[in-house]
Design a protein around this nucleic acid. Structure first.
Lengths: 352, 352
DNA sequence: TCCTCAACTTGGAACGATTCAAATTTGTGA
DNA sequence: TCACAAATTTGAATCGTTCCAAGTTGAGGA
């Protein structure tokens, strides 16, 4: 009894401890843990009691090592502080948790170098798969080099730059950027807008290209002109958008509306308009993309496209888990539709 | 040469593979990996070349098992979708990544049951420590039971309910709730407000109690009355706050200002005021707490208290890592100060 | 009594890395 | 050429769990 339950403050309780206490073999305890029907009822009860008594905590790392399995998924996003991705991450974690997986988190802050580091570091923990929303400018070659072909990868939200490496058949979950931007543009056109700019984002990014394409499509379908100085690039955040606002009005004819790359840019643009005496939603129409929480609360509230990011997170997790369970299946590209939410920031053009 | 570098598509490269290819022992390869000065320059170069050539990925789980170490930290927050916590998580991940740790993520959505599950599941991955922002109503006993005493825990943002278990000497990182609410209340008083309500939150939560105490302190110091019907409880989210708005005006004298539990509540309250024909920032003064991104963008922009959540995240990570490195040290309670940010939502009382 | 069978149990070799004591090689001075 | 020390390398045990093949029971049938 001397070596009994004294809380030996500094060693973890393992299978061996339980086995010794119950006077059975480690194998038997393991079988109990895994719920095997092989063990005798009575034995099982004794062991379970002892597990509880000693406060045993399963060591999944050891089990994974032996079984050559993994119970984690790496989630790497370009900007966790963006409410859109925070919602997305919540959805991912929800779905993964339900499936018995744990989320390894990494945020890259749009830095390609950090993305490489983060991926490499997370891979050392041997995740069953990776969900990646790439940093801007991240290339297929780089990602392939650090992730390799063994670990399933799901791309979310953005395509990778560079020629599509044929050897890297990744799954994708994308938003219907083109259709979204087309819807927004059509909405402005229906309000009577004719001089519509496309504002924000970097022309290099795939999502920006797609959104721009949707804008062009709608403009051309309506027979409206597109002035080259109506396309303004800026970093996809509020600060840079506000700073670039003036560029819209350098040349004439100045636009009276703007389809923005995303909500952050749209909100920034609106902030930039006020000091020029232009009131968005009255003198100038603005649309966004993402429907982040701020969108409904800004002044005026922002017309934008919603994609239910939390549901996208769950979907991403499920797509990846499918792939983990069936690595051989054909890679799939899923495009999730978006919905226009009309709010106060879109308006007809000024009377004259 | 037959067994050479053929990409045996389905087995991971291990130390043994590298050792075999270089014709050295596993021990030597291990020494190379860990940068030991013992290995010969020439050998090291050969091994490193081979590591690269075969695309070797370190298996941290195996190493951790053998070395009885851990390289992950669990981060469990009550609501990742809340921008305040998203920023916090970003800060945590930033600091942990820098220290060579990986973040295991869990979001509980304010559910105590989920909190238990999530903690239990993450603990099986043997994190070196846990950062927990508890769900509302989570008790010290519960947490102690699932986390145990071996794994260091840092509490963020909220105290646990229930008598302080003396056996669980956890570190804490709290915001200066009381002082923050006092600052907000004093600010309103300085504007001439006299009938000030305290709106939102659950009286059971520690942060709500502290904020309320700060409000009381300022009111009493100014010799102002506090009507019992000026304290309205509601869930700490926008929807419930908007719904409870009417409760402010059931009895007379009605307040002309409200110190709100947090920004979400304040934004919800403002949404609820509009339909009553009360314009916040003109007819009624409102303050929040947290300075989430929306706060600066609402109409009117919200006067609130900022706590630099990303910096708090970094701080939390550092405090926890200190504890991991020195488990014996006295547990500390860190209170992080907050700063008043005055914006348009706070105003003097209506003229009459 | 002996044998078979079902129902449990268990020893011991993995999983991939680390570590220490011990073995091997190399270099030096006499 | 040899003894001895320094510089490298390595065999084998180990971390906590799994799982196969083989072992131990006890009951029932011949």
């Amino acid at each position: 009894m001397a070596t009994d339950s004294a809380p030996h403050a500094n060693r973890k309780i393992t299978l061996t401890d339980i086995a010794a206490a119950c006077d059975v073999s480690r194998a038997t305890v393991s079988l109990v843990l895994r719920g095997s029907p092989l063990v005798n009822k009575h034995t099982r009860a004794r062991v379970e009691e002892e597990l509880r008594r000693q406060g045993y905590v399963y060591n999944r790392a050891a089990a994974n090592l032996r079984r050559r399995t993994s119970s984690s998924i790496a989630l790497v996003v370009n900007d966790l502080a963006n409410p859109f991705f925070a919602e997305f991450a919540t959805g991912v974690d929800e779905a993964l948790g339900g499936a018995g997986y744990v989320t390894l988190l990494g945020s890259t802050d749009e830095s390609i170098a950090r993305e490489q580091q983060v991926l490499a570091s997370l891979l050392e923990h041997d995740p069953a798969g990776v969900i990646l929303s790439p940093a801007e400018g991240s290339t297929a070659d780089q990602v392939l080099k650090t992730v390799g072909m063994r670990t399933p990868l799901l791309l979310f939200n953005r395509e990778l730059a560079g020629k599509a490496t044929p050897a890297a058949p990744w799954d994708r979950l994308m938003l219907d950027n083109q259709r979204g931007a087309r819807l927004a543009t059509e909405h402005l056109i229906a309000l009577g807008q004719k001089r519509i700019a496309f504002f924000g984002g970097h022309a290099g990014s795939s999502s920006c290209q797609q959104r721009h394409a949707g804008y062009v499509e709608a403009m051309q379908a309506a027979g409206l002109p597109i002035e080259p100085h109506w396309r303004i690039e800026c970093a996809p955040n509020r600060v840079d958008a506000a700073a670039q606002c003036g560029a819209l009005f350098f040349d004439t004819p100045a636009p009276t509306a703007a389809v923005c790359y995303n909500d952050a840019v749209a909100l920034g643009l609106m902030l930039g308009l006020y000091p020029r005496g232009i009131k968005p939603g009255r003198d100038f129409a603005v649309t966004g993309f993402d429907d982040i929480a701020e969108a409904a609360l800004s002044a005026p509230p922002l017309t934008t496209l919603t994609s239910a990011p939390r549901a996208r997170g769950r979907q991403a997790a499920e797509l990846l888990l499918q792939r983990v369970r069936n690595p051989q299946a054909e890679p799939q590209r899923t495009v999730s539709s978006v919905k226009l939410v009309v709010r106060g920031s879109s308006c007809p053009p000024p009377a004259i």
